[in-house]
Each structure stands twice: as C-alpha cells, then as structure tokens.
C-alpha cells in the first residue's frame, strides 16, 4: 500500500472514530448531566452547580406530590403490563399452537399500535373514551396502556415461540399429558424468559407514557410523567433531577443485572 493511500485510510478510520465518539457523547451527556445536577443543593437548577449535597433526594422523600404520582404510576404500570401479558399470551398460543384461520394476521394486528402516530392516536382515543365513559378512569387508562404495550409482548414472545419445537409438546402428550399441561409445562415454561422480558418492556411502556395520560387521564390521574410534564411546562422543580436520576439508576440496574447474571451461564 502506498504511503498517501495509507494516510487516507487512517484519516477515514479516524473520522469514523470521531463521529462515533460524538454520538456517544451526545447520547450520554444528558444522562450524566441530570445525575450530576441532582446532587446539588442550589435553590434553582444552574450550571455549574455552586453547592453539592443530597437535598433534592430529601425533598423528594418528603414530598407527597411526587410520591403520590410515583405510586400511581407503579400501580398503573403493573396493571397494564398484567393486562397486556394476559392478552398477549393468549394470542401467542392462538398464533403458534392452534389452527385458527388467519392466525398470522393476528400477529400483525397485535403490533399495529406501535406504528400509529401518538399525537393522532390520542385524539382518536379521547373520542372513544368519552363515548365509553372511560375518561379519567384508572382501568381505562390501564387498558389504553396495555394496547400500547401489547406489541412488545407479541414481538418478543413470537420470536421465542418460534424457537420451541412443537415436537416437545407432542412427546408430552404421547406420554399422557393433557394439551393444557403440555402448553403450560413445556412451551410456556420455555418462553418464560422472553415473556418476562416482554412484561418488563410493557411495564416500562406504561410507566414512561405521557401522551395518553395527558388526554385520557383527566385531572384526577396524575402519573409521574404527567406530573413532570406539567411541572416543566409551568416552570421546573429541581426535585425532578432527583427523580430522573433515581429512575435512570433503577432501570440501568434492572437492565444490567440480568445481563451480568447470565454472562457466566453463557460462557
């Protein structure tokens, strides 16, 4: 290879590295910044912080407003993830283990909500919810979130179900198991890790959701994202940095822990 050519190659590789590095910084900077600002005792958010401390976490722990919103969000996310899970597992069995006609369409139907523009979807849901009298109802919002979360259960579950050979069930049935036992004891048990992942994604979908709750929740259902959204629109409260940092930390652990635990098993 000629010298100028080699220099050109080096330049190209260096450019790639610089671009990659910039993306990493642009993505990680907001996260790092939020965590940094949460450990400041300044009365208002400023950069660089003039004082350090855990005052914002103490304020958070003492605040009824934020803790009430957090508790509502957790209950809502658990309810909607459970609904999405039940609907999704039934549909997954119907898609992969029955002779229901048009069952492949069922899969497409299950993921369609992922592709609907949210701002249009929420207007449409507002109209339907007011007709059904579900505006401001906990169960209604949980159902709406469940429909948003369903695609994740279907996508993750389907990919996993495809990897389970039906022959295993056939063997179990030959040995005298009922079909329900074969489904529950073999197929569902084998796809449990994937379904658990889907459940976590469904929980997360509802927990972070801020658009449906804005349209459908009414004044009564103030979830954590809605409380933050309102607070930022009408002047922001520094406690939000502490909430954000805690959530980032908790979800990072929730994502990293299973990876770290399975690392040994894979090797």
């Amino acid at each position: 290879m000629s010298a100028p050519r080699r220099a050109g190659e080096k330049l190209f590789a260096a450019c790639g590295a610089v671009i990659t590095g910039t993306i990493v910084v642009l993505v990680l900077a907001p996260v790092v910044l939020t965590v940094l600002l949460s450990f400041s005792n300044d009365a208002a958010i400023q950069f660089p912080p003039q004082s350090w401390g855990v005052q914002r976490y103490l304020d958070l722990a003492a605040s009824t407003k934020w803790l009430t919103a957090l508790w509502l969000s957790v209950r809502l996310a658990l309810t909607s993830a459970t609904i999405a899970f039940v609907l999704g597992v039934g549909a997954l069995l119907a898609i992969h283990r029955t002779r229901l006609p048009l069952r492949s369409w069922l899969e497409q139907a299950g993921i369609v909500s992922l592709l609907i523009p949210m701002s249009a979807y929420s207007v449409a849901m507002y109209s339907v919810f007011s007709q059904l009298g579900l505006l401001g109802s906990f169960l209604g919002l949980a159902l709406a979130h469940a429909v948003l979360a369903l695609p994740f259960i279907i996508l993750v579950g389907s990919a996993s179900m495809r990897g389970v050979p039906p022959d295993l069930e056939l063997t179990a049935i030959t040995l005298g198991a009922s079909r329900a036992r074969a489904w529950g004891g073999i197929t569902l048990r084998l796809v449990t890790p994937a379904l658990a992942g889907g459940f976590v994604m469904a929980f997360q979908t509802s927990f972070e959701e801020a658009v449906f709750v804005n349209f459908l929740g009414g004044p009564g259902l103030v979830t954590l994202p809605k409380a933050i959204f309102d607070s930022v629109q009408f002047g922001s409260d520094p406690v939000i940095t502490a909430i954000s940092a805690s959530i980032v930390l908790i979800s990072s652990v929730a994502v990293a822990l299973p990876l770290a635990l399975t690392r040994g098993a894979r090797r």
Binding site: V27, L28, L33, T34, F207, E208, I240
Partner: peptide, 19 residues
C-alpha cells in the same frame, strides 16, 4: 449508547435535553 434512550423514559430524556 444505543439502548440508553430506550430505558430513560420519554419525559425524562426530554427533560435531560432541556437541561
């Protein structure tokens, strides 16, 4: 880097960029 925006939550990542 690719997955951080996924688990940050819609409001929180916008708030972080706002800051």
């Amino acid at each position: 880097t690719a997955l951080v925006p996924f688990w940050m939550g819609m409001i929180i990542k916008n708030y972080a960029i706002y800051l």
